[in-house]
Nucleic acid binder design. Structure first.
Lengths: 193, 193
DNA sequence: TTAAATTTGAAACGTTCATTTCATTTAAAA
DNA sequence: TTTTAAATGAAATGAACGTTTCAAATTTAA
């Protein structure tokens, strides 16, 4: 009976993510989204609600993609040390391939609106909790295998690593010198060994 | 002959800084600035040019204030270790006193617009260069005094510390647990000793 | 083939945006 | 006291904002 969606939802989210990532939430207009997605205004509102709810869907899509890419690499690592190094190397790779110097979309939106918009605060909190939990998991394993020291608890190291990743992403906005970034990563990780 | 400014320029910049800091550049409207400064629209345009030039003046004011506060504390420190610890402790203090969870204004505006607005890119680049240079200076002294190790160059450690400060500020937006933050700082600094 | 429901397109909604205009007020130098 | 130019206030500018409306087109199941 009803006509069904003709556009590819993921493709639309992908294109919306590009423009949101580049310009930020407040810097992106509905017209930008119309242009970026090649969708009609009404279709956007019909299918995604409002600008804010669309942004939240874009964020989820962005994070799911990120998680997927990381998991794909992480299964290849043989121990905790390799896992952590893989995570940081992927971030360095993202920085270097980020021609627009946009930084991390999740870091950016936390900076832009976590203190203003409860739904974004909640999203970034969940993101933080998940990231710290999975880092803690890896650190724990590394400590049990005696690859990492026990000077701090796994949680404390996880918070440190989470914080360092955000710092790395912020630093990478202006500095894309690969040697600098790799030294930076090795300095960050040294405390674990 | 002419009437002179009746408002206190620094007071206006201070009030403008509060609202820009809270809402970000794109999130702050001219009406917000009129309300926050109690100045007339025309007076703002007469005295500060445009929204963007006003923002740049606010940023300079914000940074000058920050520099001043840090210098005031830094002169009290007896060696490089104390200097670095003072810097990080002041950041932790700022985070804990930041009831609105706004984060650092300079980190925020880099995230929001460094990739879009050349004047902001240039401002944040200069800020980054200055911060790294002064950190490098302190690390150098610490290395000469054999308080800090020489595993990495002073510049590499300075970049690491700069990056860590940004991570700390981003982490502090959602996490204001003082114990967590102090553990975080001590983990960050451990690599130097 | 018909009926149903949703997508789509284009236009319009009222609001807010940054900025400008201009007449009035003000205060300092002549 | 007069002159002068900037500060001020209030209103208006046109453009852009997010969102809604609604008729037309479309496609699927009955």
């Amino acid at each position: 009976m009803p006509k069904s969606e003709t556009f590819n939802r993921n493709e639309v989210l992908q294109n919306a993510a590009l423009i949101f990532h580049k310009k930020g939430y407040n810097g992106t207009s509905m017209q930008d989204l119309v242009d970026a997605t090649s969708l009609n205004r009404s279709s956007i509102y019909n299918s995604f609600g409002s600008k804010l709810t669309m942004f939240l869907k874009v964020l989820s899509y962005y994070q799911t993609n990120l998680d997927h890419n990381f998991s794909k690499e992480l299964v290849k690592s043989y121990n905790a040390k390799e896992s952590i190094e893989t995570i940081f190397n992927l971030h360095v790779e993202e920085i270097i391939n980020d021609d627009d110097r946009k930084g991390c979309m999740i870091v950016n939106c936390k900076s832009e609106m976590a203190n203003q918009e409860p739904s974004i605060k909640s999203f970034t909190e969940k993101n933080q909790d998940k990231m710290i939990a999975s880092l803690e998991d890896i650190v724990s394993k590394g400590q049990m295998e005696k690859i990492f020291n026990q000077d701090q608890t796994a949680y404390q190291y996880a918070l440190y690593l989470f914080s360092s990743i955000q710092g790395l992403r912020m630093t990478g906005i202006l500095n894309k010198n690969e040697e600098d970034l790799q030294h930076l990563v090795s300095t960050i990780l040294k405390v674990l060994y």
